[in-house]
């Protein structure tokens, strides 16, 4: 077992854990924004910064992102300090300047004692804070349909040629690699990624999808592209994905029941 100091307390951890994981396991709160337990850490938002030092460092310290920094023996970690508060407040200040009217950033500002940004707000703000969660979840799903385009203050997220600053060539279908799974919209903390489920099906990233229904109960399941993708990726037959979870369970239970009952009567 390994151990390190967390806010003056000796805590145990397992090899390979990040500082954030250790802190959460010990119920020490660290604010995060671009972190998601299901995705690889990205270290983009800089909200989870903590101070690390060692006894032999002679008073020197480093500010690191807790979501990425690996826990190590004899490390001395502080999750709260005046310096850290200032750094985190600066990050939130920048986000507020980027998205001055987005409920998510406004609430975040309130948490950090900022009623409004100290910087000039963006002229035509949208709700995107460029946390990268949507791009990472899309890659984790395996669709790789969206990515960041352009750079610096012009950076935007979307499928190729989708951001408004680009002209989509007439021959190119919108969001060609998108499977319409809505993971990006679900994970988006600010609701920037819009979608619509309607009578015709589903719409996201400017593309329309058909929605297939559960073969047994008729509940909406997902898009055909989504089912194809899941079948191809898992190596299971597509039939497996054509039933909703509830119906699959019911089928399994029925089959089991029949088997048991069958054995009982014979």
């Amino acid at each position: 077992m390994h151990s390190m100091q967390l806010n003056g307390r000796l805590v145990n951890f397992e090899a390979g854990q990040t500082l954030l994981e250790v802190a959460r396991a010990n119920e020490v709160p660290i604010p995060t924004l671009c972190h998601h337990p299901g995705l690889e850490s990205h270290g983009g938002c800089r909200l989870c910064v903590v101070e690390v030092t060692r006894a032999e460092w002679d008073g020197w310290w480093r500010m690191v992102s807790a979501c990425e920094f690996p826990a190590a023996d004899d490390l001395i970690v502080a999750t709260e300090s005046e310096r850290l508060s200032r750094t985190r407040r600066n990050v939130v200040d920048l986000l507020l300047a980027r998205c001055p009217e987005t409920p998510f950033t406004v609430a975040l500002g309130r948490d950090f004692g900022l009623a409004k940004s100290s910087l000039a707000p963006r002229a035509e703000p949208d709700d995107c804070i460029l946390c990268g969660l949507c791009v990472r979840v899309c890659a984790a799903v395996g669709a790789h349909a969206i990515a960041g385009a352009d750079r610096g203050v012009h950076k935007q997220v979307g499928p190729p040629y989708a951001p408004p600053s680009f002209e989509r060539p007439p021959g190119l279908a919108p969001a060609g690699d998108c499977i319409g799974c809505l993971c990006c919209a679900e994970i988006c903390p600010t609701g920037h990624i819009r979608y619509e489920n309607n009578a015709q099906g589903r719409e996201i990233w400017g593309r329309s999808f058909r929605v297939v229904e559960c073969a047994s109960c008729g509940a909406p399941l997902g898009t055909p592209e989504q089912l194809d993708h899941f079948a191809a990726r898992s190596g299971l037959s597509r039939d497996y994905f054509e039933r909703c979870d509830a119906c699959s369970k019911l089928d399994t239970a029925r089959a089991f029941d029949q088997q048991v009952m069958g054995e009982g009567t014979s």
């Binding site: 890659a139 790789h144 349909a145 969206i146 990515a147 960041g148 385009a149 352009d150 750079r151 499928p159 190729p160 040629y161 680009f166 060539p169 021959g171 190119l172 060609g176 690699d177």
Partner: peptide, 24 residues
């Protein structure tokens, strides 16, 4: 546009990523 798509197909790099690099 056609070239980006072809590069993506040939290198087995997602089209979105090719676009990302091309605009960066």
């Amino acid at each position: 546009c056609e070239a980006l798509q072809q590069v993506a197909d040939e290198l087995k790099v997602p089209h979105s990523q090719v676009f990302s690099v091309a605009t960066f």
